[in-house]
């Protein structure tokens, strides 16, 4: 699978954000250090679930923290309306703050959304 897109803006939605904040920092660090991601315009931000609709338009993929999985139906309804791919973050990746895996899932999510 080849990365075909130029831009990937990732929105993480969560509860009140302590652990998600750490995750965003970690993911940004990985992006900064990666040579292969250099040509792509990558942005990562986290917002509470209640503000999804305010921000969704500026992003390409939505990742949902596993601790608010129960709101997924509601959130994916919003995502569907704006035609954005959405997915719950793997619990173990989330717990271990495995930013690399989560970044890769976001890339896969975007590729799948583009029909690859």
């Amino acid at each position: 699978m080849k990365i075909t897109f130029q831009r990937l803006h990732i929105l993480l939605v969560c509860n009140l954000g302590a652990s998600t904040g750490v995750m965003v920092t970690k993911m940004k660090e990985i992006v900064k250090q990666s040579e292969k991601l250099k040509p792509i315009d990558i942005e990562i931000k986290a917002y509470p679930a209640g503000e999804l609709e305010e921000h969704i338009q500026n992003f390409d993929v939505i990742l949902v923290g596993p601790q608010i999985k129960h709101q997924f139906a509601q959130l994916s309804e919003i995502a569907k309306r704006y035609n954005k791919p959405i997915e719950v973050i793997d619990t173990q990746d989330y717990g271990m703050v495995n930013g690399g895996n989560i970044l890769k899932s976001a890339i896969l999510l975007k590729l799948h959304a583009e029909g690859q």
């Binding site: 596993p66 601790q67 619990t91 173990q92 989330y94 717990g95 271990m96 703050v97």
Partner: peptide
């Protein structure tokens, strides 16, 4: 990975990581 969060009373890393 979860020991510093535990000191700050954050359980998510071990709750989701162990899991």
């Amino acid at each position: 990975a979860s020991s510093v969060p535990a000191i700050f009373t954050i359980s998510e890393p071990v709750v989701f990581g162990l899991p």
